[in-house]
Nucleic acid binder design. Sequence first.
DNA 1: CGATTTTGACCAGCGC
DNA 2: GCGCTGGTCAAAATCG
Length: 308
Amino acid sequence: MSPSHDSSMENDHEKKPELGTDFPSDSSWTLGNQTDNSYFFNSNQESSILSEFGWNYQPESDRNRENEGFSEFDQIDLDERSDFAGSFQLPGNRSSQSPNPAVPTESVGVSSSNPSVSSSSSEELPEKSTESDGRPPEIPSKVRKKGQKRVRQPRFAFMTKSEVDHLEDGYRWRKYGQKAVKNSPFPRSYYRCTNSKCTVKKRVERSSEDHTIVITTYEGQHCHHTVGFPRGGVITREAALAGRMNASAPQLYSQGVQFPLGYSLGVRQAHRVPYGEGQSQVLTEPTPQLPTDEGLLDDMVPARMRNR
DNA sequence: CGATTTTGACCAGCGC
DNA sequence: GCGCTGGTCAAAATCG
Ligand SMILES: [Zn+2]
């Protein structure tokens, strides 16, 4: 709204070439073709869920049904065509063990989506600036633009009841955009991992109705360690969840990620941690053994940054 | 002074 | 083909 007139219409000259740097791995959107399904589950239950679900795809009709029960998620993913299935309900109220009393956060729900396709080169070579396009010899022919193509990597979202957005998950993020969300008074922020070699992105937004809930969506996975992890034994749900994302693709260094997120997780990386009465939370180890390449040292950070 | 955020414009996919 | 919308870029502003 309010774009009355963009006076500067000529500014778009210089910008394309740069993309090569940031997005070396241009691959056309794999477009999950709707294949990206998402599963939702409430924290009340064990969260190994994903492994149990086994990644079934449901017909759209079914999805619709499920959506009826949702509120925020519904809107969020509806627009994106990702779907969240399963049931979600706010936990009555659990004494969150959040490390920070001032920042109470509770996990409310989680969901993940599977991209489809293959993947992409998670490990692309950025050094190729000349031919950004690179047009892979064989591209399906679908959506492929002249140089810009994005692969939709698996996504993983979860809701957290928190007063502050942008929860600390152990990684450093740089905000690169913010957009207003339709039907919601709250904007959505886009973040990207500060590691130049890392293409992980993250979206943060508040539920349109319950502004007490923050929805964080991770896309892709880190190829490096987290900055400061459990140094005091404090692990936030966010961190744990974020770690789960990594766990999903153990070695995927370029492969595929064919299995749904959580699949591997449920297998053996998930640890059940008693969380209140009858409630458990799943904690995953943050990056079990990612091959340390090189940009790892980069992560050194003051380590005591406030939640930003 | 470098890193990060802010913010408007641009772009691509999809629905109509 | 047009318009809407989500997502991204990049220049300027701000932070530390
Ligand atoms: Zn990263």
